[in-house]
Nucleic acid binder design. Structure first.
Lengths: 247, 247
DNA sequence: GAATTACGTCAATGGTGTTGACATAAGATG
DNA sequence: CATCTTATGTCAACACCATTGACGTAATTC
């Protein structure tokens, strides 16, 4: 886990709503131990939240449960983060950093883009609830710059013109992010809801009358299996295949 | 808006939890007017919910607010939908139905899939806030059946084997839905937030030091324009191009 | 050692989904 | 028309949620 970079939280939208967390960031803080003895900080809270999500599932991320996990009053969190959304963005920031740790683009641009896509997706799936929010949001932070630099650089090295490199990087990254967010929001569903969705392919779709749905009838035996896994890698390969042919 | 077909709600998961909605569907229902005089039905509730979300945003979709909008007690909704998730699926399916109105697949399977993709995306963009919550779900309802039937049928007609038809339909529809949901959630952001995001984006990228980000420096003049529009059609064409080559 | 104030705690507010009990009108049956 | 059944609208209540304002105290500063 990378140490989360301290960026000004003030430059985000709605500066007017900053009531509690208004201090100049980077100042030394008073470290007053909580009742149970732990000492809070932004990093401690973010790390604990990530662990909480990983251990108990995304729905466990509530201020109450996080407070309990930290051994402090739930509202103490509001001394460090404006609201839960602010906390989620901080978690997302740490997640992006985690995703890119150890990644180095290689000489094979197709393979490198493929790995970049898979890494982003894995990171998102590891923290689905964060992903669901972060994907629609534009973070525009340091780690995203790194990703853009790597992706555009790979496409340039492949021989694409600057215009096309930008254009296809956009297609690439949006498709990866969109799929990752979709999978993440699916895996963020309550387990019984997800199970019901899965079962529907074998149950509901198997009972559809063949006269009304001939195509579904034809592929019936393959439906459950075909709809079960993730189409991510297939999608990635389809896209990269077309890209390689267009260079 | 199409009339939503009434399918058995009982064949869904967890039959044990079906405490309230257990009647045999299709029977004539007693239409007892509410206090305010309106007569409830599944369609009335769904339509009202769609309007509510479109007008007040996705967070307005609560049983209490929906009850207020309908002019009935909030808990009356539970006579028609098992829980809010059940209601959400009905809303999603009504959205699918709206996007399919007037659509007929033609002999050219690539062009037909292309139009199907564009239609789904347009429908989602028309109701971005519904899209954001519904994209990852399997609705298990009539309009979704129709969409699956058409998509799989097109791929079969293209010459794909049943196994591949299912597999590539999944890739196709997930990619379309994922992109549509991403665009939808972006366009669902508050205008000032979106504008601020865009502005900060071009500004930040323009100030990045070229020594640290050489690729970004190379494509700098094309960045704003390349990142401005939607990559949806590019993505669609890339995907269909690869599909056509694999048949 | 006094002053300041960051921050942990507590109490409270108003929101959420959901359930069980109850009343009553709609439709069925005679 | 009268009676019965029951679908369904209403109400009260529960347990959870995020968030805020007041308050005391300990950590830092001077």
């Amino acid at each position: 886990m990378e140490r989360r970079e301290v960026v000004n939280r003030e430059d985000r939208a709605d500066p007017g709503e900053a009531k509690r967390v208004d201090r100049v960031v980077g100042e030394r803080r008073r470290r007053r131990p909580t009742k149970s003895g732990t000492v809070l900080s932004e990093d401690v809270i973010v790390d604990c939240a990530v662990r909480l999500i990983g251990h108990q599932g995304p729905e466990a991320l509530t201020v109450r449960k996080l407070g309990a996990a930290l051994g402090c009053d739930p509202t103490a969190i509001y001394r460090y983060f404006r609201n839960t959304d602010d906390l989620l963005l901080a978690i997302a920031d740490s997640l992006i950093g985690e995703t890119l740790v150890g990644y180095r683009p290689g000489p094979d641009w197709v393979a490198s883009l493929r790995e970049l896509g898979l890494r982003v997706r894995d990171g998102y799936l590891r923290h689905p609830r964060v992903a669901a929010i972060a994907a629609s949001r534009v973070t525009r932070r340091h780690n995203e710059f790194r990703a853009v630099e790597m992706g555009v650089g790979l496409l340039l090295s492949a021989g694409f013109s600057p215009v096309d490199a930008v254009r296809y990087y956009r297609v690439f990254i949006d498709t990866v992010l969109a799929h990752a967010a979709l999978e993440a929001s699916y895996s963020a569903l309550a387990p019984e809801v997800r199970a019901a969705d899965d079962r529907s392919w074998t149950e509901t779709y198997n009972t559809l009358p063949e006269t009304d749905y001939p195509a579904i009838g034809t592929v019936r035996v393959h439906l459950a299996e075909g709809m079960a896994g993730s189409p991510f890698e297939d999608m990635l390969d389809l896209m990269l295949e077309s890209l390689a042919r267009r260079v």
